[in-house]
Simulated scan of single mutants.
Amino acid sequence: MPETLYQLLRDSWTDGFQALQSLLPAAAFFLALGMLVKRSAVFADMRRAAAETGLNLQILVFNLIVVGPMIVILSQALVWIVYSQGISLIDSSVWIGVPALPVMLLGIFIGDFVGYWRHRLEHTRFLWPSHAVHHSDTEMTWLTLERFHPINRLTTFVIDTAALLLLGLPAEAVIANNLVRHYYGFLIHADLPWTYGPLGKIFVSPAMHRWHHAADKAAFDTNYATVFSIFDRVFGTFRVPGPCTVPLGVTDRMAPTLAGQIGYAFTARAYRRRSVKPPAPTDAEMARVPGE
């Protein structure tokens, strides 16, 4: 048992730092994309976001070292609980013979549906203190996706993965969901003005998700999906009046340091009130928003 645990830890750290190295191509991609969209202004934006980006990288490394091994162990535990104890809602044999691509697409769609409701749960009183770390980035860039409190990382993994395993979906569907929603998450966090036009009614655009991070009362409790904006449209949380140019961030008082961000969720004051969330806009207010 100790040897198995050591192997799991070693493998998780190896995979984690390989993932860290894989950020280099992503960085090159978003730099090229930023230069294409913003031209020389991209460098001024990078300088302005430098402090927040540095903190994002610190949180990323912390999670790789501390949370990575925990996720590996939890993944093994979830597979054992669901399959060995026979508690899946749909027998995995149902998917045998079904072409891989439709099953993977179904996994992504279901995963985003689960993620939508899990994300709404994160904006409630007891999970908000850890999720607030993600929203505390005032200069949102593609690397904001890596700004997650360890508690938030763990709850996200457990809820999203358990739901797919309970449906008996094969490994390729679970992996496709994790990869697609993760890398698409980089895009929607990027500082891009895109609304996608008519396609924005189906897919989440960078502008749509930026409104989710806006420090604007009208934007609170909106735009929870990661890939498919149709979930926000169906459940009444869709709001994209245009490109988002308003300030970002939260009113929660947490120090812009690694210790301040990680420690915030362990303070009593974080649970006293949801300072970032005034009441959601009424239907009348939503109807007055141009472009709806």
Rank of each mutant, 00 (worst) to 15 (best):
T144G: 08
N63M: 06
V250Y: 00
D283N: 09
T53L: 10
Y196D: 10
F126Q: 04
A44L: 11
T53G: 13
S84E: 15
R47P: 06
S22H: 12
H131G: 08
F29Y: 05
W211L: 07
T267E: 03
F62I: 04
F238S: 06
L258G: 04
E122M: 13
G236K: 04
H189P: 02
T124D: 12
T267K: 03
M35K: 05
L164M: 05
Q18I: 14
S88F: 09
V82T: 13
M104W: 04
R153K: 10
P25Y: 08
K277C: 08
Y83D: 14
T257D: 09
P247I: 01
M254Q: 12
L154K: 05
A215W: 12
A173R: 10
Y264C: 04
E52H: 05
N152I: 02
A26D: 11
D137C: 01
V276E: 15
I71E: 10
T156S: 09
H213V: 03
V174Q: 11
V227E: 15
G168R: 01
L165Q: 13
T161P: 10
L36C: 13
D11K: 03
R269L: 01
D112G: 09
L199G: 06
A287L: 06
T156K: 07
I81H: 07
W128Y: 13
A27E: 09
A214T: 12
Q85I: 05
A171P: 01
Q76W: 13
S93W: 13
V61S: 07
T124S: 14
E139I: 01
W211R: 02
S136Y: 04
C244Q: 06
A163D: 00
G168H: 06
H149A: 03
A77R: 01
G291P: 00
D160F: 00
L164Y: 05
D221F: 05
A176P: 02
D112Q: 11
E285Q: 14
E139T: 11
P193V: 06
H149S: 08
L9H: 11
A215R: 15
A49V: 03
N63P: 00
D232R: 06
P102Y: 08
V98N: 01
T141Y: 08
G242R: 07
F148T: 05
V82R: 02
D45A: 13
N223K: 04
T257V: 09
D137P: 03
V72G: 11
P69G: 11
V82P: 08
F228G: 00
T222P: 01
L5I: 12
V250G: 00
L57G: 02
S136N: 10
I71Y: 01
L258E: 05
M286Y: 01
P99T: 01
V276D: 14
G54W: 07
I151W: 14
W194M: 04
V204L: 03
S136A: 10
I175S: 06
D232H: 09
K277H: 14
F29L: 15
V250I: 13
M140E: 07
Q76I: 07
A41R: 13
P129T: 00
Y271P: 06
P198I: 11
G185L: 05
L199Q: 08
L101K: 02
L31S: 10
V82F: 09
D191N: 14
I202F: 13
H131E: 13
M46R: 05
W128K: 07
D283Q: 12
V180G: 04
L154D: 10
L166N: 04
G97V: 03
A77Q: 08
R39F: 07
T53V: 12
A77T: 13
Y83H: 14
A132H: 04
D221I: 00
R48K: 15
A219T: 01
N177M: 12
